[in-house]
Computed example of a mutant assay.
Amino acid sequence: MTIQAHLESLEKKHGALEEELRTALTSPSSTDRHIYELKRRKLRIKDEMHRIKEMTRH
């Protein structure tokens, strides 16, 4: 997998998590723990995308 393909894959995962988080935030059955996990996973993906972008700039 190329770096660009990996970035695109991460961006898709990030977008899917964003959508899942939006749904969870509006659902009364969502627990705080579930919302926390979604946010944590989303942040990890965002951090990984940032690291990859920084590596390719240098």
Rank of each mutant, 00 (worst) to 15 (best):
M1C: 06
M1T: 07
T2H: 13
I3R: 07
I3W: 10
I3S: 07
Q4N: 04
L7P: 00
L7I: 15
E8M: 07
L10I: 05
L10G: 02
E11C: 02
K12E: 11
K12P: 00
K13R: 04
K13E: 10
K13N: 13
H14S: 14
H14E: 08
H14G: 06
H14W: 08
H14A: 14
G15Q: 03
G15P: 00
G15W: 07
A16Y: 12
A16N: 13
L17C: 07
L17F: 03
E18K: 06
E18A: 14
E18V: 08
E19N: 10
E19D: 15
E19W: 00
E20M: 15
E20V: 04
L21I: 11
L21T: 10
L21N: 09
R22S: 14
T23R: 00
A24E: 03
A24C: 05
L25E: 11
T26V: 00
S27A: 03
S27W: 13
P28L: 09
P28D: 12
P28G: 01
S29Q: 13
S29G: 05
T31Q: 10
D32P: 08
D32R: 14
R33S: 07
R33Q: 11
R33N: 08
I35G: 03
I35W: 13
Y36M: 02
Y36L: 02
Y36T: 08
L38S: 09
L38K: 02
L38Q: 06
R41V: 01
L43D: 09
R44F: 14
R44V: 09
R44N: 13
I45G: 10
K46N: 10
K46I: 01
K46W: 03
D47V: 11
D47Q: 11
D47R: 08
E48G: 12
E48C: 11
H50Y: 01
H50A: 14
H50S: 08
R51T: 04
R51D: 15
I52R: 06
I52W: 02
K53N: 09
E54S: 15
E54R: 09
M55D: 09
M55R: 14
T56C: 11
R57T: 12
R57D: 08
H58F: 07
H58E: 00
H58L: 07
